[in-house]
Each structure stands twice: as C-alpha cells, then as structure tokens.
C-alpha cells in the first residue's frame, strides 16, 4: 500500500450566506486511486470538486496536496503562481463540456501542445510530435492535428480534452461528469479510454458523476453526497452492492441494472 495520500480533505465547507453548498467533507485520495463523488444535481458534488481543485474558494476546512518534492501544504498557503503552475503541470481538469476545457479556435495540435509551451518547451517539431503521439493515444487520427475542435464530434472533443490534460504527465486529475454530454455509444469509448489511461499512467482521479455505472467502471472508492453532505462512502462495489443509507439505496434502486 502507498504510505501517504496525495490529496487530503478535512472538514471542508462552502457556504453562500446561510446556504450550505457542502459541509463536513473529509476524505483522502491515495496515489493511483480513483475516487468517485456521486449524487444528484444540487447535491454539492461539483461545488466540492471546484473547492478541492482550487477553482473556487472554500469557506472553511483544509485541502492538502502532496507535491512532487514531498511537501504536503494546504493549497491555500501556496502562492497563486504555484497553484496555477500545479494546475497546468501536475493536475488536470476534464470538464463536462469540452468547450470549457479546450481552445475551440486553435488546432488540436496546439490544444495538446499548449501545456508544453507553458512549461517552456520551445521546439516546434518536438511539440508537434508529442501532440501527434497523444492524439493517437486518444484515438484521434494524426491527420486531424491541424483541425480545430469546432469541427470535431462531441466524443472527439472530449478525447482531445483528455489528451490536452495528460500531456504534461500530471499526477492528479479532476473530472466533472466527463461523459455527461455524450451519446451512450460514445460514452463507452471515452470511459474505456479513461479507464485504460488511468491504469497505464497510475493517475489519481477525483471524478464527479451522477452515473453509477461510470463510478463502478472507473473508481475504487465512492463518496455519496446529498444536500451538501456525505451520506455514505467506501469501496465502490460495496456501496453499490450493499448500500446502507436510504439515499444510496434509492440511487441504486433507480437504475435499471448496474
């Protein structure tokens, strides 16, 4: 077993005035582990993801991240420059809508190469080759490298977004309903790709989804949220096969077969 978590959340809360978007959230993510946060719309799962990934300020609580040098600082104590550097090198964020995570008006190659250029890569040929390799890994034909994402299908855009995130070999990926906007057949392909990449690259992932089948396929551990609180968490297959909380039982009973 890995000895130390890569991400540690303690008593996290986010309030809007009197309204509690999420509260009393505590969990760890270990290297190579996929943790799914499930719950219905409005359960606070996306707010939680945004607070953890530093895209939104939390009201209280701790979020600690294991840096490559072994430090384990609260993300709030990092400078903005450090946080942004982490976000574009050591982390990835896969949005539900690929347009939120891609530059729709620049080519697929430049979308993938941007992170490389951001960390100082200044050799066009190398950047382009790396981009081509990543397009291949996400099953996008190399001949599309100079096409803009506006000409891509939804599934291709999502795969491009994944490649764009992985090119710097991040250690932690946040995903917000990565297959949410896709047709079922396209979903399966994206899911399968994610599953393989996560395993091959040993990524740690926090994935928000309302789809229990996605959680079962990708995650080892699951957190069930309702009204901003964690109602149940544990091994994914145990939570799904032996749900204990009334809300989890309702969720599991609501799907035809999982």
């Amino acid at each position: 077993m890995s000895t130390q978590p890569i991400l540690s959340i303690r008593d996290l809360a986010r309030r809007y005035g009197a309204f509690v978007a999420c509260a009393n959230i505590s969990f760890d993510v270990w290297p190579g582990e996929v943790v799914a946060i499930v719950g219905e719309s409005g359960s606070g799962k996306t707010t939680l993801l945004n607070c953890i990934s530093g895209r939104m300020e939390r009201s209280s609580g701790e979020v600690r991240y294991r840096m490559r040098d072994g430090r384990f600082p609260d993300l709030q104590d990092l400078s903005e420059a450090e946080r942004r550097f982490l976000a574009r090198t050591d982390w990835g964020f896969v949005h539900q809508n690929p347009a939120d995570g891609l530059r729709m008006r620049v080519s697929a190659g430049a979308n993938v190469g941007e992170r490389l250029m951001a960390i100082g890569d200044r050799h066009y040929g190398n950047i382009r080759q790396t981009a081509a390799d990543w397009l291949e890994r996400v099953e996008i034909a190399a001949m599309r490298i100079d096409d803009k994402p506006v000409s891509f299908s939804g599934g291709m855009r999502q795969r491009l977004q994944i490649a764009r995130n992985l090119v710097t070999h991040p250690r932690l990926i946040f995903m917000d309903e990565p297959t949410g906007g896709l047709d079922v057949s396209v979903q399966a392909r994206v899911l399968d790709l994610l599953r393989m990449l996560v395993a091959d690259l040993g990524l740690s992932v926090v994935i928000v989804t309302h789809d229990l089948a996605v959680a079962r396929l990708l995650s080892q551990r699951m957190i069930v949220m309702k009204s901003g609180h964690v109602v149940e968490q544990g091994l994914t297959d145990r939570v799904l096969d032996d749900p204990r909380h009334p809300y989890t039982q309702l969720l599991v009973a609501s799907i035809p077969e999982n």
């Binding site: 544990g234 297959d237 145990r238 096969d241 032996d242």
Partner: peptide, 9 residues
C-alpha cells in the same frame, strides 16, 4: 462469500 470478499459490509 461476498462478505469474505469485502463486497458486503
């Protein structure tokens, strides 16, 4: 069997 595998609590 499922408890022994940890699939059931």
């Amino acid at each position: 069997l499922r408890m022994v595998y940890g699939n059931y609590a």
